[in-house]
Amino acid sequence: LVRYRTISKIPQITLNFVDLKGDPFLASPTSDREIIAPKIKERTHNVTEKVTQVLSLGADVLPEYKLQAPRIHRWTILHYSPFKAVWDWLILLLVIYTAVFTPYSAAFLLKETEEGPPATECGYACQPLAVVDLIVDIMFIVDILINFRTTYVNANEEVVSHPGRIAVHYFKGWFLIDMVAAIPFDLLIFGSGSEELIGLLKTARLLRLVRVARKLDRYSEYGAAVLFLLMCTFALIAHWLACIWYAIGNMEQPHMDSRIGWLHNLGDQIGKPYNSSGLGGPSIKDKYVTALYFTFSSLTSVGFGNVSPNTNSEKIFSICVMLIGSLMYASIFGNVSAIIQRLYSGTARYHTQMLRVREFIRFHQIPNPLRQRLEEYFQHAWSYTNGIDMNAVLKGFPECLQADICLHLNRSLLQHCKPFRGATKGCLRALAMKFKTTHAPPGDTLVHAGDLLTALYFISRGSIEILRGDVVVAILGKNDIFGEPLNLYARPGKSNGDVRALTYCDLHKIHR
């Protein structure tokens, strides 16, 4: 019993810090008490220290592992850092350059016999395009090294910054494609005289377009951006097909006994025919423009016929181009109408809503002055909100995010209106959640004399007048207030005048 009563005193000691020596009952000389009392004092002292730490809000209350900052290894790049964003855009520009100039170089340097010394005699450094290609190869190699040090988000939505895990993730992902696209074939085969082989191998750079397509997928929600990307894709495919079309004609031209190829026909049409040795002929500019003209006309199913396939190889390629053109029509131009419709969806919704308003007016036989006010209010409210119901949009977000959005939407009023000066951010967040926005066209009466005042109004834009009878008592403008002081009276009061809008007004109100 003594032991039980001794232990039962522990909660009292913990909360009230009572010393055991003052209790005459606990001072009985028993061996059990002498053993338990020192333990009680020690526990009391420890609990006292913990309570003191909690009340003082000291940093040592938290466990040590929670006080440590997340460790980022040296030379690790955050995937959302500004440097990584700028670097990704730079790589994107280099990939676009590669997609345009690599097929052009591979096709127009394929057994090209233009006048001038061969590239091997001039030297590697004197070729501007080769120098640019070398810079692109170096940048792609540097990009691989950067990807080995860039964080990523795993399946659990955690940012991984450990170098080993980053390397394994990159090896399992895009490393092989990036490595093949970054191989400097110019340096590996330079001086061997195989410019045709170098041009063909350099087309491996186009593998990076797969990554670019995935990154550009984030802009699919913007109709104008999608339309622009589709047109660029169409032009890029036409450019690639033009390079292939020229390569076919250029390879067949020296081996044909009869002059029936499209390059021969082009030379005869523009007065620059090929001679018996295969030299001469149109310039590279004429060849490229004509090839691009043929691919565009074939892809769009126009086909004027002034550039036509004559050999079997050219006919087979033309059939493939027609098939590609039909697929592009289905996948690209078939979506253009939907994209344009999405661009004008706001206008369509406006006309639909206006039609419903006019049908309501016609069905209920609203008189002319009231009908005009109804239409003007709808037009003004639509121009202010673009038909978007803010309350319906915010309803799907958590309250903390709703408060931040409301604070942002009402920031101008909260910053410049005098009653809100000096208020804490928590108070402003709470008030912003209570605001209701209303609009009024010129001549609209917001409050009639004798109406119950259940709200306090803040003028965000425009001006109003307060009338008693036919006498203008006051004219209020931006950041002015009218209405009933909230919670100042037990019952809502009545208006002693009319409140009429002089201009288009936007008002925020808080109800009782």
Rank of each mutant, 00 (worst) to 15 (best):
A167T: 04
Q253V: 13
A181N: 01
L134G: 03
N335P: 13
H73C: 05
L431R: 02
E359Q: 10
L216H: 04
K272D: 01
N310Y: 01
L134K: 05
I189G: 13
L236D: 01
H162T: 10
T120E: 13
G325I: 01
R356D: 13
A224N: 05
K425E: 15
L299E: 01
I77Y: 01
P103L: 01
N310R: 01
F420A: 01
S194A: 10
R208W: 01
F234W: 08
L90N: 01
L200Q: 03
I405P: 01
L176R: 01
T113F: 03
N312M: 01
R371Q: 11
I339N: 04
G116Y: 07
C126F: 01
L236R: 01
Q269G: 01
M139K: 01
E112K: 11
Q127E: 04
N250M: 13
W245H: 01
I183P: 01
T98H: 01
Y274Q: 01
L90R: 01
T203W: 04
N312V: 03
P103H: 01
Y288E: 01
L78Y: 06
G261M: 01
K84F: 04
Q372W: 03
G223V: 04
F101S: 04
A330F: 09
A381V: 10
W89I: 07
K285Y: 14
I166H: 01
A119E: 08
Y384M: 05
Q269M: 04
L90Y: 03
G305N: 01
G116S: 07
R429L: 03
I260R: 05
Q372F: 11
P282G: 01
I91G: 01
L227S: 01
T311Q: 01
E221H: 09
M390E: 03
Y170N: 01
L413S: 01
P117F: 06
G426Q: 04
I198H: 06
A181W: 01
M390W: 04
P309K: 01
C427H: 03
Y384A: 11
P128V: 15
S383Q: 10
G396A: 13
S161Y: 13
G278M: 01
Q415Y: 11
F228I: 10
P184W: 01
A432H: 02
A432Q: 01
M256R: 12
W245T: 01
P184L: 01
L78W: 06
S337W: 03
F296A: 01
L279A: 14
I138P: 01
H380N: 08
T385Y: 14
E121M: 06
E64C: 07
A348E: 08
V131Y: 04
A432G: 06
L409I: 09
Y222W: 08
L216N: 04
F228Y: 01
N306Q: 01
S277A: 06
P103A: 01
L206I: 05
L431F: 07
L110E: 15
A242R: 01
Q68R: 11
R218A: 08
N391G: 12
M251F: 09
F420G: 02
I366D: 01
R358E: 03
H364G: 03
H162W: 07
P369A: 04
R165E: 13
V131F: 07
H408S: 01
W240H: 01
S326P: 12
L78R: 09
S276D: 14
F175W: 04
P441L: 10
V336H: 02
S313N: 14
I91C: 04
S297R: 01
I248G: 01
V180C: 14
L201R: 01
L207Y: 09
D217Y: 06
